[in-house]
Amino acid sequence: MTPPPATWRLPPRATLLVAVVLLVAAEVGGASMARFKVELARWARGEMLRHPGVHGLVGVRDVDERVLDEALFRFDAGLRLFHMHAEGMALVIIATTTVAATLAETAGLRRMLTLLLTVGGVGYPLGYLLWSVLIPAWGVERSKSLVEWTVWVPFGSATIVALLGLLALISIRMVRR
């Protein structure tokens, strides 16, 4: 086994590009939330009113306003969580794929770790955006359940598995030095 390089190696350019695009999306998302807060809330509210059955609206103003406020809060929370997770995961992709590019000795292992870290890191935050977009037409819980099993669990698991693989790889390199 060759000794680990003393300098960092860059991950593939496509990975860096994807991570930077995710950073840009997070920044734009944060800026849009602030700039178009009223317009976004108006759109979501309009969509919710077009799907009264989904949200359990009964036509009584006092009851419906509480339900709409709660759903709008979740809609806004989803956008905020997308903003925060996209910023964080973009940096996690850059840092962890740099470690994989430097310490993984075989091309196959390097490719697998990089792919899992990139795909998992990009996909997971997009789930929050999808959740927000779906809430007005699908309802809070139904859309959450859908996104949970189609986005958060698979993409989050990919990242966690890859991180555990990376930890095993670093441990092996430390032990064999």
Partner: peptide
């Protein structure tokens, strides 16, 4: 850029 010691990298990833 230089790479820090492996134990530091391990703690960061951990």
């Amino acid at each position: 850029m230089s790479r820090p010691p492996l134990v530091v990298v391990f703690v960061a990833v951990l």
